[in-house]
Design a protein around this nucleic acid. Structure first.
Length: 209
DNA sequence: TGCCAGGCCCTCTTTAGGGCCTT
C-alpha cells in the first residue's frame, strides 16, 4: 500500500475535554505512517502540573503518581513537535487533538506548522455502514490489528494510524486512486456526505493522479 | 443563580435541537 502520503498520526490523553485551567495533556503519542506502515513512534507521559480526577484515572490508567515522575509538558511537546516536523497530521476526532496540540505548543511559544486530517470525519463519509464511528469500534469492525490498551496514547495513535491506512486502502480499492494526498483527505472530510462519491469519481478521473 | 467543550451532522431544520465523538 504505497498510495497514501506520509502522515503523522497523533493522540493525546488529557485531564479533560478542553484545554485550559481544567484541561491539560497527560500523555501524547505520534506515529509515522509511511506506505501504509508504521515506521516511527514517539510516546511519553507529560507532567503539566494538572490534577488527574478519579474518573480520568479510571478511564486512562494514568494517575497523579505516574505524572509526578514524568518529564515536563514543555520538554515532551518540544520533543514530539521536533519528531513530527512538517509531516501532515491525522487524528481521530482531530478537532479535539488539534486544540490540545495548539494549546500545549503555545505554552512553549511554538506554533503548529501543518494541517490536520480527521479519521472520524473520513470514516463517517466512507464507512457509513459501520455500527458507530468510535475508534475502537471501527478497528474491531474492520478487523485491524489490536494495538494495546485503549485510552493510552500510543495504542490509540496506532489504532488511528491503522484506520487511516484502511481508509486509504478503501479509497484505492473502490475508486482506483493511485496517490492519496493529505490535502485530498482534508478536502474529502469537508465534502457533504451526499457528494463524496462524486468527489472520489472526479479525483480518480484526474489525469494527474 | 446556575452552569461550565465544541465542532460536525442529521432532521420532526434553517428564528433549533440533540446525538455523536474526543478525555
Amino acid at each position: 500500500m504505497k498510495m497514501l502520503e506520509r502522515v503523522a498520526v497523533i493522540d493525546f490523553e488529557t485531564t479533560g475535554l478542553s484545554p485550559g485551567q481544567n484541561g491539560r495533556a497527560t500523555e501524547i503519542a505520534a506515529v509515522i505512517l509511511e506506505n501504509g506502515k508504521i515506521v516511527g513512534r514517539y510516546q511519553s507521559l507529560m507532567n503539566a502540573g494538572a490534577w488527574v480526577s478519579p474518573f480520568i484515572e479510571q478511564l486512562t490508567g494514568i494517575s497523579n503518581k505516574m505524572l509526578r515522575t514524568a518529564p515536563s509538558a514543555a520538554k515532551v511537546m518540544a520533543e514530539v513537535a521536533d519528531f513530527v516536523g512538517w509531516t501532515p497530521l491525522v487524528a481521530h476526532n482531530a478537532s479535539f487533538d488539534q486544540k490540545f496540540w495548539d494549546a500545549e505548543l503555545a505554552l512553549i511559544n511554538r506554533q503548529r506548522v501543518q494541517p490536520f486530517a480527521c479519521s472520524l470525519l473520513l470514516a463517517r463519509r466512507l464507512l457509513p455502514q459501520a455500527p458507530d464511528h468510535k475508534l475502537g469500534t471501527l478497528n474491531a469492525w474492520a478487523r485491524l490489528p489490536p494495538a494495546g490498551k485503549a485510552h493510552r496514547a500510543l495504542a490509540d495513535a496506532e489504532m488511528a494510524a491503522n484506520l487511516t491506512g484502511y481508509l486509504a486502502n478503501f479509497i484505492h480499492a473502490k475508486h482506483g486512486l493511485k496517490h492519496i494526498s493529505h490535502d485530498f483527505l482534508c478536502k474529502l472530510q469537508k465534502t457533504p456526505a451526499s457528494k463524496v462519491a462524486d468527489a472520489l469519481e472526479r479525483e480518480s478521473c484526474n489525469p494527474c493522479r
